[in-house]
């Protein structure tokens, strides 16, 4: 080259952030991960979306062609409608209970002093890291016909109840699995809260309850909303809990997809349900993102 532009020369590393260098460095750095995600996230999702429009021949098990019948089945077939409705009902109930338990619990935790606070935070959050199969199994024993819950019911004179394989059991176990996801965001927004603000409200003569409702609650609302959406999203796609505690008849969306794929072998139908589940999840998350990022970030800085 006959001329050298001074600005084209690479700047020294450790310069202004983010660096405006020749863009080969970031591509080189993120390339391997980008390849993996292109191959194992984008491609399979695209293939699955295609598959959901394929026809399925029950006799031969072959797929091909183009059809909308799987999507139509979801909105017209009573079987699928009931399953989507049940999934929605169970998830909404689990979310509501998580709010009712998780929000006060996060508040109580935030008012504790160390070391108790750290210990109990660990107790509440650590089950998150234990395999969900183990937790579902624990509930099946607790609620089983010979389990301690029924034992207590008999001792109280209420008598043995059939607890397993009911919607109630699925909801209870989902709450157990999802509660940390509610406590975490609420706890985070409580951490950001200046305790002096609540004290200020009290100093103006507000009662404790008024202070909580008028001052604390509005500030942790984004955390509650965020937790609710995560809990709802994860509950709606939960597999192990309904699979192990719902039994043969109490199907949810995830267990139906599993059946379609591995028992009925109707992959296109399963793919259609999966695509709907994914779309619903993305819509919820993006709506939430819009709402929280736009509204609350502005108001609460």
């Amino acid at each position: 080259m006959s001329t050298t532009l001074p600005d084209a020369a690479p700047a020294s590393p450790g310069g202004e952030t983010p660096e405006r260098r020749f863009p080969s460095a970031p591509l080189f750095l993120s390339g391997p991960a980008a390849l993996l995600f292109a191959a194992l996230v984008l491609t399979p999702l695209f293939l699955t979306a295609l598959l959901s429009f394929n026809q399925f021949d029950y006799a031969t098990g072959r797929t091909g062609g183009f059809t909308l019948e799987h999507y139509l089945a979801v909105v017209t077939d009573e079987y699928y409608l009931e399953i989507f409705l049940r999934t929605f009902r169970i998830s909404a109930l689990a979310t509501a209970i998580c709010v009712v338990i998780g929000v006060p619990e996060a508040y109580i935790l935030s008012r504790m002093s160390n070391p108790w606070r750290s210990i109990f935070l660990l107790v509440i959050l650590a089950p998150l890291l234990v395999s969900v199969v183990v937790r579902a199994f624990g509930w099946s024993m607790l609620l089983g016909p010979e389990g301690p819950v029924n034992g207590a019911l008999i001792a109280l004179g209420i008598g043995r109840m059939k607890l397993l394989y009911s919607e109630g059991t699925v909801v209870v176990a989902l709450v157990h699995v999802m509660l940390p996801f509610m406590v975490i965001p609420v706890w985070t927004s409580l951490q950001k809260l200046d305790p002096a603000v609540e004290q200020a409200a009290l100093s103006f003569g507000a009662s404790r309850a008024t202070a909580i409702v008028r001052v604390v609650a509005p500030q942790i609302l984004p955390g509650i909303l965020s937790g609710s959406l995560i809990v709802f999203g994860l509950s709606a796609s939960a597999f192990a809990i309904p699979g192990l505690l719902g039994g043969r008849r109490l199907k949810m969306v995830a267990t139906v997809v599993y059946d379609q794929y591995l028992s009925d072998l109707n992959w296109p139908m399963g793919a259609a349900v999966a695509v709907i589940l994914l779309a619903a999840n993305l819509i919820i998350m993006l709506t939430y993102h819009r709402m929280v990022e736009g509204h609350y970030r502005r108001r609460l800085g």
Binding site: P6, D7, S12
Partner: peptide, 24 residues
């Protein structure tokens, strides 16, 4: 220091031009 490159001009240290020298 050499962390930011000047758009124009020169920096000399003990008679040596260090304008484009790397910080290290």
């Amino acid at each position: 220091a050499g962390f930011v490159e000047p758009s124009a001009g020169t920096i000399r240290l003990d008679g040596r031009d260090i304008t484009r020298a790397k910080a290290n």
